[in-house]
């Protein structure tokens, strides 16, 4: 089975289930939206998929990506890309340093070229040496996506990444993210409480909680 598959996933806080057992499939190039009110465990589900669940919670169930079991792997070997509501650029690294963080095992020149190409494609040429704090909100959001994509993920997880942006920027950035994911044929799992985001994704919409 290609794509991202979840089977009977349950999260518990002190023994209490956050939502009923969840099963879903996301095919490559498809976007599945998970909707629910805040506090229903949407973000924790993504954290569980990444292997970075808060120690106060426990998770059970199976998750696989392109047929390979995810749950046994440490977070850094799951090859999942995740975007949060905040861009979470590393404040101590330059824009180029952030982009290069997930690009390992390449010669220096090759790394530089890949970073420069990604920035040019995002209409931010020559930004590699810039301080992330000097960028606009829209630019920071784009750098955050580029950072994820450069690491070569095999699936994309979106944790309300459009929530912080204003209305005009929001539509543009949403298009930017979804186009890039579609071009790479990535399965995308989007959690949101905004119906417009779920609708724009153009895929199945599930309700949680």
């Amino acid at each position: 089975m290609r794509g991202l598959v979840l089977q009977q996933v349950v999260l518990r806080l002190e023994g209490r289930m956050l939502f009923p057992p969840l099963s879903l499939q996301v095919a490559p190039g498809q976007v599945t939206a998970l909707m629910g009110p805040s506090g229903c465990g949407k973000s924790s589900l993504l954290a569980w998929l990444c292997g970075t669940l808060d120690p106060a919670l426990t998770g059970q169930g199976r998750a696989s990506l392109d047929g390979a079991d995810l749950t046994a792997l440490p977070p850094e070997r799951r090859r999942l890309g995740i975007l949060f509501q905040d861009d979470l650029l590393f404040p101590h690294l330059s824009v180029g340093g952030n982009l290069g963080f997930g690009l390992r095992g390449l010669p220096r020149a090759e790394r530089r070229a890949r970073i420069a190409a990604a920035l040019a494609e995002a209409e931010m040429p020559g930004f590699a040496e810039r301080d992330p704090a000097s960028l606009s909100g829209g630019q920071r959001a784009r750098v955050a996506l580029l950072r994820v994509l450069l690491a070569g993920p095999r699936a994309l997880l979106l944790d309300e990444p459009f929530g912080r942006l204003d209305a005009a920027l929001r539509g543009r950035f949403r298009r930017f993210v979804l186009d890039h994911a579609a071009a790479r044929g990535l399965p995308v799992l989007l959690v949101t409480h905004d119906a417009a985001d779920a609708e724009a994704a153009g895929g199945p919409v599930l309700r949680l909680g």
């Binding site: 954290a47 970075t52 440490p74 850094e76 890309g81 979470l88 963080f101 994820v148």
Partner: peptide, 18 residues
Amino acid sequence: LDPRLARSAAALGAGPLR
């Protein structure tokens, strides 16, 4: 410290020590 900072780094392929 925002735990998502470390989660982002882990999702980019960095092990706990890195």
